[in-house]
């Protein structure tokens, strides 16, 4: 599996299908924002969101949405705070903020959040 840094530096893309997102790296998700929903419950209780790290990717389900592409418009993003799998979650410098852009043909563009886009952990 690719590393988070490798994905960001090489502008590698993920995938999105309905309410499911596939990230081409392994990561623990600490916080997500879709529209104005702040999701911090990843307890897999069929509300909020849940993620699963497989051998090849990380998949993320948003239970409150049927199709994310219907609600996340052209200039909007899904924002995540995540920590690469294997790194220390408790070291704040390992927390990475990323923006996910939902593009056509299920392509998911992944960018590290720049200083312009406001996202407070």
């Amino acid at each position: 599996m690719k590393s988070l840094r490798e994905v960001l530096d090489n502008k590698l893309t993920g995938l999105h299908y309905g309410n499911r997102i596939l990230l081409p790296f392994g990561a623990h998700v600490l916080k997500a924002v879709v529209e104005n929903d702040i999701v911090m419950d990843f307890s897999n209780a069929k509300k909020g969101a849940a993620y699963n790290i497989t051998r090849d990717f990380t998949e993320l389900y948003f239970y409150d949405y049927r199709d994310l592409s219907e609600v996340v418009t052209e200039y909007e993003t899904i924002k995540l705070v995540c920590v690469e799998n294997g790194k220390d979650v408790f070291t704040l410098s390992n927390h990475v903020k990323i923006a996910l852009y939902l593009k056509e043909k299920h392509i998911l563009e992944i960018e590290e959040l720049n200083d312009d886009i406001l996202f407070l952990e």
Binding site: V33, N36, I38
Partner: peptide, 11 residues
């Protein structure tokens, strides 16, 4: 304003 704040992660 509420929506913008929440999108920025402020509860």
């Amino acid at each position: 304003v509420k929506a913008i704040s929440e999108r920025a992660g402020v509860k």
